[in-house]
Simulated assay, not measured.
Amino acid sequence: MSRTERFDTALGFTTAKGPVMRVVRWLVYAVCVVVFAGPLLSLLVNAFTPVAKPTELTLIPDEITLDNFARAFDRGVLGYLLNSFFVVGFGLLLQILVSLSAAYALARKRFPGMRLVFLLILSTMMLPEEILAIPLSLVLADVPLVGVDLTGTLLGMIIPVAAWGFSILVMTEFMKEIPVELEEAARIDGAGEFRIFFSVVLPLCRPALGVIGIFGFVMIWDQYMLPLLVADDAGQYTLPLALRTLRTDPEVGLGVLLAASLLALLPSVIAFLAMQRQFMKGLTSGAIKG
């Protein structure tokens, strides 16, 4: 590779050496870090700092304290956090099971009306939550066929997120790339449909599981409209909904709100770090196969 050969970077710069270009690159990188990482760093630092007014936010704290978290727990934040974990745990489990089942049927089976089913699944991603709010509240108040009222229960927050069009589409496209010959070989060996699914198809879907796992976790964790429709009292609030209550409470200080916001942010970050490897494999698998 010659020294005169250049490569474009993500920001449009080249690797050409030179003092002026190096200074410009570092200035742009510094601005990007401040814009994107500054608010997160401010949240992290000030959650452990006594803060009374927004103008007192700082990146260099004079005092470190856990008083904000103690006061947040006194306000019931721990209970809201447990509600969120309960909803996202069971909701994500159901969502993955539904996505795997639906994707396997769409990717490997042929049945009348399959394109219509696929179109209906796709159409669910085009409707904003505000349009679905009233119909969803009516359905949850009187579930068809069974006549059960799910309002005022955490189950009412879990059932609606059990199926998500995005996860089904991602898993379907990934399963289509799995060679059919692997399944045919398993059938020749006498494996049944469930054995093929769990022993052949599912292990190959781990990268896609990382993708839908992270996106599904964030989608369920950040739900605001659904808990607002279902919850009857504050004891059923999830943490994103409780943040609104804390924000409008005049007796709650800014430090408590920042501490609660940090608790709401950390699970998504931890989930991404835990599934980062599978997530990256899932994102790049399509490019590699293409």
Rank of each mutant, 00 (worst) to 15 (best):
Y80N: 12
A162N: 13
Y104M: 02
A260P: 15
D189W: 07
F48H: 04
S123I: 08
T172I: 01
E181A: 12
A52S: 15
F7S: 15
I288W: 11
P250Q: 01
M225P: 07
A259W: 05
A10G: 11
G152L: 15
R110K: 06
K289C: 09
V88I: 15
I168S: 00
Y104D: 00
P135M: 10
L265W: 04
Q95R: 09
V252S: 06
N68K: 03
S99V: 11
I60W: 02
G113P: 00
R115E: 01
M157T: 01
F48W: 07
V34Y: 14
Y29S: 13
F272D: 14
S99I: 07
E184Q: 14
M114P: 00
I121D: 02
Y104Q: 02
V139N: 06
D222R: 15
M171T: 02
L106A: 00
R244I: 04
R108Y: 01
T65K: 06
R115G: 01
P128K: 13
F174P: 01
I159Y: 02
P207A: 02
L94H: 05
M219T: 10
M275T: 08
P203Q: 03
R25T: 02
G38L: 10
F111I: 00
L132H: 06
V180K: 03
T245P: 08
A208R: 02
M114T: 00
A231F: 11
M225A: 15
L265A: 12
L140I: 12
E183N: 04
P207G: 00
T9V: 08
E177G: 10
I196G: 00
A105M: 00
G165K: 05
L145N: 08
M171E: 01
W221L: 08
M219L: 13
I288L: 15
V98W: 09
D233G: 10
E184H: 12
A103S: 06
A186K: 03
L266F: 15
A274N: 13
V161Y: 03
P39E: 11
L57Q: 04
D232R: 09
